[in-house]
Design a protein around this nucleic acid. Sequence first.
DNA 1: CGGTATTTTGAGTATCGTCAAGGCCAGTGG
DNA 2: CCACTGGCCTTGACGATACTCAAAATACCG
Lengths: 260, 260
Amino acid sequence: MAQKAQQVSGAGCRLGGFSQLAELPEEALAELDSICRVRTYPAGKIIAGPDEEADFIGCVHDGILRMQKTLYDGRVAIVGLLVEGDMFGRVFERPMSVSIEAATDVEVCAFNRSRFEKLLMQYPELDRMLLLNILNELDRARDWMMILSNQRVRGRVAGFLLILCTRFATVDHFLRLREGKLIVKVPIGRTDLAHLLGTRTESLSRAFHALADDGLIDIEKPDLIAIRDLDALAAEAGEDDLSSFLSLNDLMKVLKARDA
Amino acid sequence: MAQKAQQVSGAGCRLGGFSQLAELPEEALAELDSICRVRTYPAGKIIAGPDEEADFIGCVHDGILRMQKTLYDGRVAIVGLLVEGDMFGRVFERPMSVSIEAATDVEVCAFNRSRFEKLLMQYPELDRMLLLNILNELDRARDWMMILSNQRVRGRVAGFLLILCTRFATVDHFLRLREGKLIVKVPIGRTDLAHLLGTRTESLSRAFHALADDGLIDIEKPDLIAIRDLDALAAEAGEDDLSSFLSLNDLMKVLKARDA
DNA sequence: CGGTATTTTGAGTATCGTCAAGGCCAGTGG
DNA sequence: CCACTGGCCTTGACGATACTCAAAATACCG
């Protein structure tokens, strides 16, 4: 599929190499590609916000975006992360309810909004893909809620790591398999993570090290976590869904297939 | 609009009396109405779940539904509430990620799923309405996340009350204006609220009474809160959006218009 | 190798979860 | 009409957890 996308890709916009876009008919992909412009942003740059008039639909190529809401007192609450293949932007004139900021240096693919919507009318498949994409985001938002509703920080950290293992497993370089252990790269710093999990960096640090002391994880570097006991993590998080949907075995299979 | 809906309503299914459905073309409404069946459930009844095969799209007429996920250890986390006019159900064969349970006695309007999806193909307006509906749910999920990411229970309670004032302001009997004060009816019990806010009933009680002691609210009954200082509540919640989107003045206008 | 940002640690305090008991209805049955 | 019951909300006391402030250690980047 990636090859097919490459063929129709004129602007170096590797649409379809990831995400649900791959399943679109070739014409649609070609048309999408023709209205696509690649843009890059440095870490920290605000890409889209309630006040920004940036009027495009975006698709993440590389890097991490964070969706956040800024509180009146300047604090920010992060309500989600966008990774490779995720889409964002305002459709159908709806005001953007979150602002989108680059968490790392990013490369996104931008579509002119009105032209994108025209394609939406033209290709029902695209329309439905968008719907499914949004439904996925909804599920993810609920996953975050589950994590946040855990009272202990330890549990929230555990849940976060699990999300990293499941949702971000197939994309990117977040997850490796080394000597039979899962190595997870935490894509954001402690400050962002604290905002995401509704806590403070100090508590995060303590939680990570508590999990390490109990042998559930190893902290190889602050942003590189080795998971020793996935089931124990799941128990810590109280997560039912994740562990049942995607067991350790499935993960291993996925990783072996990818590393081969 | 409500009248129009009434005209085409044969089964006593007051579609269009609320929600975005009102804006659909008459034919679509009529067809929807023809495949609609009114169902009632007692409080506590599980209406739809991952294992249930209940294969219909629903629209809430009256009462409150809660969307929840059950953890493997039996604990439940509530990830949202559905009120009058909200829709739910599985579209396009997607597995339901949450189970839906009646929080109060409810009356819902059920559409056969396959027939509903056929209408979806037939009326682009319906399709887009569904999309907007889902986008709304996404926003709401993010609002809940904001609330949950507040570290103190006081803040979460404050945020919850604000959501009640804004999102649920236009629907239902949740909000009244009496002697210049906002009277909010809390539609769920302390146990559910505790699950929703990721805390315990005892902490909730203390938080409510702390807010009352500080003069922000009055607790007329456990489920009937009078808001004395909306801005202070917003500050407590750290909420930016709510206070800016819908100020106290706007609320007053809405309420006066409705009570007239 | 130095300078900066990030992460970690420590000590003290506030908050919250926990357990246990008491109070407040609403409904029930005498 | 009143006592009784059960569910829910509240209160109190105590221990666990997390937030705050401050300082030290580590990682990161030229």
